[in-house]
Each structure stands twice: as C-alpha cells, then as structure tokens.
C-alpha cells in the first residue's frame, strides 16, 4: 500500500491558538479521502501545511513521497489545489485565470477544459470581480480538474455550488477516481462525503478523532433503543457502549454503540423483552456528535 499523504504528529500554532495539535492523517494513493470537521477544526491549516504555504512547528508530513516544505516546486507539478476562499484578480477573466493556473502547474488538458466549462455552465469571458462566489469556485475547479495531476487537494470546493452543480462536481470526482487520481476533499456536506469518499477522517480541535472507511465509521455510530421489559433492567448502566440511559420502571431508553449491540441485546433478552423499537445508526449522528462535542 502506498500513501499519497502521510502526516504524523503535526503541530501548528498561531500565537496562543493551537490550530493543529498532533495531527495524524494518511491518504492512500488512488482513494478519495473525505476530510471533515467543524469550523475552525484545522482543515484549511492542514491543507496549507501540505502545500508548503505554512510551516509546521512539529511533526512530519510526506506528500507524494516528498517533503511539502522543502520539495515545494517539484511536488506542485504533480498536484492541483482549490482553495476554500477563491479570490480572483478583478481584471482577469475566468478563462485567463484557468489558463494561467493550468500553465503555471505545467500544462492543462484542452479537451477537458472545454468539457468542464460546458458542464459547469461557466462563462469564461467574465472579469474576476463580476463572478459570484459559486462561479469563482467553478473557475478554480475547472482550472484544477483540467490539469493532468496525480493529486487533487480540494478545500470545501462545493460550499458555493447549487445542487445541480454539486451533482456535476460529484460526477467529475468519480471520473477522477477512475483515472486513478488521489483526492483529498475537505467538506461539511455529509451527503457529498457519503457519495464520494472511500475513506474519511474527522478532525476536531487540531486532532484526528476518527478515521476509516464509511462502513467502519458506521460501526462507530450508535443505535437508539426503546424497550419495555418484563422485569426491571439490571446491569444495563454498567455495560460498555451504553449511553444516555433513561429508566422508568420497566421502560428503558438508551443509545448503544453499534459494536456492543449484540451484548446489550442479550442482556435485554435476559430481562424479558415485551416491546422493542430501535432506530438505525446514521453517519449524521456521528458527525453531529463530533461537531457538538467541539463546542
């Protein structure tokens, strides 16, 4: 297994703020990797370190086999970046920006450029200052996606796109995966991540708190259970994986980690189950849990 990105123990401070606090992240070659976390968690900071725009205080980072701070120019030929906040030059047209960035990266694929402009319904003749936020993002996306590179680093690339364009974007990323490219995609949109990503890392206050494939993560989610038992429940509160237990006589409500579900159900059965409702786990719940805990 080769890694396009491997980061360990990354620390980056801005004055008193510890933006990255021992971050570990690995992205396998050829995968689409989702990078999630609440506002201010450190996603953009991580990406900027990977691009050599910021210098980490501690830790090591490897990108396409090189050091992102020292081998900057050589590595940048092999990747394309879409920033979270796309800001264009007021006097350059979108088409000029696409060509400029493509050429500065080392050339762009003419056919793909034309194709992408059409699919994203982007008018390349407008001046930078007259584009809306979503259209500025499209300019950066077309520039990145029409370059022949191994790695795409996208920082919340769809935050300004409408649902139609979001669908176009998802198609494009799936095509990139088929071409064997690696994608690091930071996002807040769960549906997008579920639709696109092979693996996901969740970052919170500068640390990775979860990482794995979507099904592994689903495994980490909790099932909600409400049950009426024959006798009063015993030992339930002491069991690992049981959360937010509310017991009223013979009725119980609680949440249980998916990997403990089997043991907990056996315990319930031992007390005799009269009625049982369960709500299946969703990734959303997992994300919200991490997002809320950050507050």
């Amino acid at each position: 297994m080769t890694y396009a990105i491997s980061v360990s123990g990354l620390v980056k401070t801005f004055g008193p703020t510890r933006a990255l606090d021992g971050l570990d992240l690995t992205v396998r070659t050829g995968e689409v990797h989702g990078f999630l976390g609440p506002n201010g968690a450190g996603k953009s900071t991580t990406i900027r370190v990977l691009l050599g725009l910021l210098r980490a205080d501690e830790g090591t980072a490897r990108l396409l086999g090189g050091d992102p701070w020292r081998d900057t120019a050589a590595l940048h030929r092999r990747l394309a970046y879409v920033p979270g906040d796309v800001s264009l030059w007021p006097n350059l047209t979108g088409g000029e920006v696409i060509d400029l960035l493509g050429r500065l990266r080392g050339g762009l694929n003419e056919k793909r450029r034309a194709d992408l402009l059409e699919r994203f319904e982007l008018d390349p003749r407008k001046k930078g200052r007259t584009y809306s936020k979503g259209n500025r993002q499209k300019v950066a996306l077309v520039a990145a996606l029409s370059s022949d590179v191994e790695l795409l680093i996208l920082d919340e690339p769809t935050s300004g796109l409408d649902p139609l364009m979001e669908a176009v974007f998802q198609d494009c990323i799936n095509e990139e995966r088929e071409r064997g490219r690696t994608v690091l995609l930071s996002s807040h949109i769960l549906a997008e991540v579920e639709a696109l990503c092979d693996r996901v890392s969740i970052i919170r206050t500068g640390k990775i708190v979860e990482t794995g494939t979507l099904s592994e993560l689903r495994h980490l989610t909790r099932t909600s259970i409400a049950a009426e038992l024959a006798s009063s429940p015993n030992g339930l509160s002491a069991m690992p994986g049981v959360h937010d237990l509310v017991a009223e006589g013979n009725r119980v409500r609680f949440e249980v980690d998916s990997d403990q579900l089997d043991d907990v159900l056996k315990q319930l059965v031992a007390s005799g189950v009269r009625t049982l409702t369960s709500q299946p786990p969703t990734l959303e719940e997992l994300f919200l849990r991490h997002y809320e805990d950050a507050k």
């Binding site: 030059w89 088409g95 000029e96 060509d99 500065l104 001046k127």
Partner: peptide, 23 residues
C-alpha cells in the same frame, strides 16, 4: 460598466512575471 473579456489567456500569460505584468 465592465465589459466581457477574452475567453482564453494569451499564450504569453504563462509565467509569474506575465501575471505580475498584467497586475
């Protein structure tokens, strides 16, 4: 009002200096 501009970058627009010159 601002008018539309070229859809393609001139072939000289390919270096950091070309960008700086434009700006």
């Amino acid at each position: 009002p601002t008018r539309l501009g070229p859809a393609r970058g001139a072939s000289s627009l390919r270096s950091p200096f070309a960008l700086a010159w434009r700006l």
